[in-house]
Design a protein around this nucleic acid. Sequence first.
DNA 1: CTCACCGCCTCTGTATACATTCGTGAGCCT
DNA 2: AGGCTCACGAATGTATACAGAGGCGGTGAG
Lengths: 230, 230
Amino acid sequence: MRASDRAYSALRSEILEWHLAPGTILGEVEQAARLGVSRTPVREALARLSGDGLVESLPGRGVVVAEASADSAAELFEVRIALETQAAALAAQRRDPAVFEGLRDEFAGAASLIADPDRSAYYDLVARFDRAVDDAAANTYLASTLTGLRTHLARLRRVAQDNPQRLAAAAREHLLIVEAILAGDVDLARSATAVHLHNSLATIIDAADSGRFAAPVSTHDPAHQIDRTA
Amino acid sequence: MRASDRAYSALRSEILEWHLAPGTILGEVEQAARLGVSRTPVREALARLSGDGLVESLPGRGVVVAEASADSAAELFEVRIALETQAAALAAQRRDPAVFEGLRDEFAGAASLIADPDRSAYYDLVARFDRAVDDAAANTYLASTLTGLRTHLARLRRVAQDNPQRLAAAAREHLLIVEAILAGDVDLARSATAVHLHNSLATIIDAADSGRFAAPVSTHDPAHQIDRTA
DNA sequence: CTCACCGCCTCTGTATACATTCGTGAGCCT
DNA sequence: AGGCTCACGAATGTATACAGAGGCGGTGAG
């Protein structure tokens, strides 16, 4: 694997998992030393992250980790609802029934996945659902744009933890979307997706309002963290 | 201006203007020599172009200019319609009337701009309209995504030349969108945008079907050296 | 004590040298 | 004659050296 890929992956997951807090300055030399590569791959990684919108390159201040707020979540969902509903509608027209029959059964039995304190199995199911919709929609622009948006979503979800009740409701909403796609019901696929995303956003806004938004998680060596309180 | 910015701008316009045909291999050394910079800024430019989706980096074959077909135009518009309608709807809610009153008058008198064989004034008006909608929608994700999509559109428009009748119709469609936004009519703004984009795509598909899509490829013009004094 | 100016110093931006990998072509073997 | 293998070469990927610009701190003056 290329050093630039490793640098990109490392920085990307650290940002998504809030090990690197918004506002953190990512100096090339510092990151190169920390990641054990030279400045060149770090530069390439930072350029890719900038393209993803995960970092901003401020003139004079270098590259900093982008902000993530409840406001930006609302903006994100204004775009995401428009695109996911379109993707669901296209998927309802073009889907391969076999794939979504499998997903229907999985979402129908998702309760056991949610019961597991480690929810990675459930999130994995959702990820497979997203990919199935993207594949069925058969639109590269749509898929790549949605992938970018979901990246930002993953960053927000980290702080606005879903509670079990919400996850159970989300599973039912997903089930309805899958059934609509299976039935080839374009309008219902669109509406069910809009409802699901509306509720998801409401959950995030709710978490933000109750103050669960501000706590960045850091399991990393504090020596590598930059003090933002100064 | 940085050398990497110059390299990016130069390559970007050459791709958009079809001076670099789809499938052209962009070797780092070759481009560095041609543009008069070293490989480092060229690498950064190619990385940004790859993020824009204007080039693809094939493993082993290097970086090649991305394809552009009528099929990809259809895909592009599936996304673009979803987002532009959303942007128009948001703009109708949040617009500053003064800006759109000015645009309304300009589109109402656009006939003279279209009559001009050099249509850059008209295209400039459309670009200002797009920016005004983006500003009014007040959504950074939406704006940046649309900017990316419009980049690809500009590449397609180059080969599917709009005819004067189509441009006149487009100006009327734009006028209706502006009026809807001014009136704060969310549904009409959405619908009028959908109609406009539907017609735009139809024009492109039509151009493709009548063979006007093929190859306006110019020869390799060494005069495209970038101006280093700028 | 505060503000402004100057200088240092670190940072980014660029160029270039080096290594590694992959494609291509030729030659040999089957 | 065709296919496989090896070697050469050119390309990318990486590291590092160098230059310029900008920020920050120190010092001096008001």
